[in-house]
Simulated assay, not measured.
Amino acid sequence: MRLGSKTSPVLLTIGAACLPLLLAFGPAQAQEQVRRREPVLSVSGEGQASVAPDMAIVSLAVVRQAKTAGAATAANTAAMNEVLAALKADGIAERDIQTSNFSIYPQYRRSETKNGTIETQEIVGYEVTNSLSVKVRDLTKLGSLIDQSVKLGVNSGGEISFTNDKPDDAIRDARKAAVAEALDKAKTLTEAAGVKLGKILEISEGSTRPMPQAPMMRMAMAKDVAPAPVPVAAGENTYTVTVNVTFSLGE
């Protein structure tokens, strides 16, 4: 009896100390358990919107070879300066012209023995490549710009990707279409299951991408260029947005 009387106050004291914690965390945990048990429906929707491109990004490169690195660099620089001057004269802003690559590589002549193994490697020259990434905001000038660049010494590259400077409106339309598809899916599923569709508990955007972007083309840079400008077809850019939506369910 004495042992019990001594330990009881301690137990009561601990219980009183923990009571505020139980009151503070108990209801929250209970609500979390209820929320977890609440029936929900999660669906995804995808929306697309197409728009004509208003800008092209063109890759142009000048490649020159010579016996020495200095001679190859000098020849490359002279040709690239002419290309840059022509681009600026054609209305391309400096902010839309960017050097994307500059490289110098030795060129080797290899001698092989009869058994196929390489015996010697001799440097016989150097190749210098200077590449530009050019944004063309006036697509009506694209064909003539490529044509003129080739005449001035561009002999590599020619990759073109069409894009939009500000695709905000197209992406907004794609978002609306994605949400509409998600809502339609949810209604179809709940009607088929014979349950009521509740309120939206959560909505998130999964991804936004230009898919597919207008085709990327690669044009051969030949020495002999036709007098007419290079024909270019811009097509359309399609922007795709995915959304994920979670609904509560009723009986």
Rank of each mutant, 00 (worst) to 15 (best):
E205I: 07
R218I: 14
L197V: 03
T190Y: 02
A214Q: 06
P227H: 00
G198Q: 02
P210V: 14
L189Q: 05
M211V: 13
V179Y: 13
A186Q: 02
L189S: 01
L197W: 05
R209K: 10
T190C: 01
A180T: 11
I200K: 02
T188P: 03
K185M: 10
P227Q: 02
A178I: 00
M217H: 14
M221V: 11
P215T: 11
I203H: 09
L197D: 05
L183I: 07
P229F: 01
P215S: 12
E181P: 03
T190S: 00
T190A: 05
G194H: 08
A182L: 03
K199M: 11
D184E: 13
M221A: 15
D184K: 14
S204T: 11
D224W: 08
E202T: 11
G206N: 07
V195K: 06
E202L: 11
A177W: 01
T188F: 07
E191R: 13
K196T: 15
A178F: 00
R209S: 10
G206Y: 00
L189H: 04
Q213P: 14
P229D: 03
G206C: 01
P210A: 14
G206A: 08
M216Q: 15
A193T: 04
I203C: 04
A220C: 03
P227D: 06
A178Q: 00
A178L: 04
E205K: 06
D224R: 09
L197Q: 08
I203V: 10
G194E: 08
R218L: 15
A180L: 12
A192E: 05
E191K: 11
L189I: 09
K196L: 15
P215Y: 08
P227N: 02
S207I: 03
P215E: 12
K199R: 11
T190H: 02
A182R: 04
P212Y: 05
A182Y: 00
A193L: 07
A228T: 12
A214T: 04
D224Q: 14
A220R: 10
T190R: 00
A192L: 08
I203P: 00
A214F: 08
K185L: 09
A180G: 09
A186E: 01
T208V: 12
S207W: 03
M216F: 15
A214W: 01
R209W: 05
K199E: 14
M217P: 07
E191Q: 09
A214H: 03
R218N: 15
E181N: 10
K185P: 02
M219C: 12
A182G: 01
A214L: 03
R209N: 11
L201V: 10
M217W: 13
Q213I: 15
A220N: 09
M221C: 12
M221I: 11
P215H: 06
T188C: 02
M216H: 15
P215L: 12
P215W: 10
V179Q: 07
P210S: 13
A222F: 08
T188Q: 09
S207L: 08
L197N: 02
M216W: 14
I200H: 04
I203A: 10
P215A: 10
P215F: 05
E202R: 14
K223V: 14
M219Q: 15
G198R: 02
I203E: 12
K199Q: 13
R218V: 15
A192S: 03
A178D: 02
V195I: 08
L201C: 05
A226H: 00
V225W: 00
E191I: 01
E202D: 14
P212N: 02
A177Y: 04
A186G: 01
L201H: 06
V195W: 04
E205T: 08
K185T: 12
